[in-house]
Each structure stands twice: as structure tokens, then as C-alpha cells.
Amino acid sequence: MKLLLVEDDPSMQTALRRALQSRGMDVHTCADGRAALGRWQQVAPDLVLLDLTLPGLDGLQVLEQARRAGLTTPVLILTARGTVGDRIIGLNAGADDYLPKPFDLDELEARLRALHRRRNDSDKESSPAPLHLGQLRYEKQSGAIYHDEKVMELTPREAALLHALMARPGHAVSKEQLFEMVFPGELDVQYEAVEVVVYRLRKKLADTGVTLMTLRGLGYLLKAA
């Protein structure tokens, strides 16, 4: 089981990483909310263990952005906020389970393994086929995009833009639509910011067998080179 642990307290992060590794889990860590989404896409974990109180972005914002970006990885929220209202907010934001601090390690492991089993059972019943374009493979279940069997290192905005275009290969997606997906709720950002993300992504797509094209008046599209 590959696990992404997003926790900013160094002692808590170290203790959890060691405890879960000793129980046979492959644990990757992140301590910053702004970096969490990119780390999530890079690692492509089976589960995410997410603290709510994080620097940069709080855990709920990270979770909401991940779900908007199409990341469906099961998430267990781990937090000192233990009221019923907080739990409801977390579950409504897209969390799959919620465990308040302090907690018992045996219970945490049991909940993680239960989430993993449910995910595996769900995958067996209806696993969406990956999308292939050129040398790229987009795994819808995890949100990861692979080139030559390696996860591409993309920023959250680059990943959101590439997800949107790979969902409609050969079809133009307007700049306005892409803006809503890449910069959700960011009212102080201009539409032209999409062009910056396109420019950076285009360079990363070199040698992948995929071309990111600009169609004046229509938007952008991906096609196999």
C-alpha cells in the first residue's frame, strides 16, 4: 500500500511515517499545503492521510482542489478538529473517512486498510480504462499521467490543464473552460495566465509523441504527433 502523509508537525510526521512503515506501508510525506497537490500527483498513492491544519493551504482546500483536478484517491482526514460539524465539512469536501487526534495507531491502520480494500473492490467492479495519447497514459483513477512508465512531474496547474485536454483528445477546449479548471475561484487572475501554463506544459511534452496546439479563436487541443 502506497500512502501519502500530509502533516506539517515534524515530530508527528516522523512518528507516523515510522509506525506505518513498520506495518508494511510505503509512506511518502509532505508538510506544506501548497506543495501537497503536486506531491499527490507525483506519487500517485493508493491512499492519502491528510492533516487539516497546514501552512500555505489548509487540508480542506487541498482536498477540494484535488477533487476538482480529478484525483479520486481515498482520503482519511487526521486532525485535532473533532467536532461533528468539522467532520461533516471534511466529508462533504470529498474525504472518505475522518479520525480525530489523539488516536490509536491500531485503529488508524484498520481504517486505512479498510479504505484500501474498499478501493480495490471498487476498482475490480468498475475500473475506468486509462487514456492513451502518444507516449502518455492518463490513469483516471489516480489522476497520474505517465510517460514511458514514469509519472510526469507536473505542477498542480499543469496537471489540471493536461487532464482537461487529455479528456478530449483531438478536440479544442476553450481558454475560458481551461481557466475555470486551472484557476478555480481565483478572481484576481487574468485569462492570459492560461497561456503561461500552456507554454510551460508544451515544453514538458517535448519527446512524448504529443503536441499541444493553439487554435486561434477556439482554444487548445492535444493530438498525437
Results as ranks from 00 to 15, higher is better:
130 P>F: 09
141 Q>W: 05
93 A>V: 08
90 G>H: 02
81 R>W: 15
136 L>G: 09
155 T>A: 00
93 A>Y: 06
85 G>W: 01
132 H>Q: 14
134 G>N: 07
74 P>E: 12
151 V>K: 08
136 L>P: 04
146 Y>D: 04
135 Q>H: 09
123 D>M: 12
83 T>G: 09
73 T>L: 01
135 Q>E: 09
130 P>C: 14
74 P>L: 14
132 H>Y: 07
96 D>H: 04
132 H>M: 10
96 D>E: 14
125 E>F: 00
129 A>I: 15
116 H>T: 11
135 Q>M: 10
154 L>T: 06
88 I>P: 12
140 K>N: 08
137 R>K: 09
94 G>Q: 12
113 R>Y: 05
77 I>P: 06
124 K>F: 02
107 E>Y: 02
94 G>K: 06
128 P>I: 02
130 P>I: 07
85 G>E: 11
75 V>W: 00
114 A>C: 14
138 Y>V: 03
132 H>I: 13
136 L>Q: 03
135 Q>F: 02
98 Y>T: 05
106 D>Q: 03
80 A>P: 06
104 D>V: 13
83 T>C: 10
133 L>I: 05
97 D>P: 02
121 D>V: 12
134 G>V: 08
101 K>E: 05
76 L>N: 10
141 Q>P: 01
153 E>H: 01
79 T>L: 10
92 N>F: 00
127 S>G: 13
145 I>N: 01
113 R>W: 05
144 A>E: 08
133 L>R: 03
78 L>M: 06
143 G>N: 10
92 N>R: 11
120 N>Q: 15
148 D>F: 00
92 N>G: 09
82 G>W: 05
126 S>A: 10
117 R>T: 01
92 N>Q: 10
